[in-house]
């Protein structure tokens, strides 16, 4: 069974209908313009746990949605 994501407009659809949208977060303790630019461009928390992310429903309404997912299990919350 594919991972399923609920689109508020189209309903429950398999992962393959969506494109992934990463939401990089630069932590507050990264200070200085250069350091924050570097962090934003490259560094990632790569969280093992629940993350907030965006998905684009490419094969449906073609709109972005927000979702929470546990990266350890791929469970959508």
């Amino acid at each position: 069974m594919s991972l399923r994501i609920t689109c508020p407009h189209c309903g429950v659809r398999p992962l393959e209908e969506y494109l992934y949208g990463e939401v990089p977060v630069v932590p507050d303790d990264v200070v200085g313009d250069d350091a924050r630019d570097l962090d934003r461009a490259f560094m990632r928390a790569n969280t093992e746990g629940v993350i907030r992310e965006r998905w684009f429903h490419a094969m449906g309404c073609r709109r972005w949605l927000w979702a929470d997912r546990d990266t350890r299990t791929d469970e959508m919350l």
């Binding site: 594919s2 189209c10 309903g11 429950v12 659809r13 398999p14 393959e16 209908e17 490419a58 094969m59 449906g60 309404c61």
Partner: peptide, 21 residues
């Protein structure tokens, strides 16, 4: 289709069918 088709009529639905939008 890997998703549930609508039961009521009339209805509009969109998604992957045979791998296409």
């Amino acid at each position: 289709c890997e998703w549930e088709l609508p039961g009521q009529r009339p209805a509009f639905a969109q998604g992957a069918v045979a791998g296409l939008a």
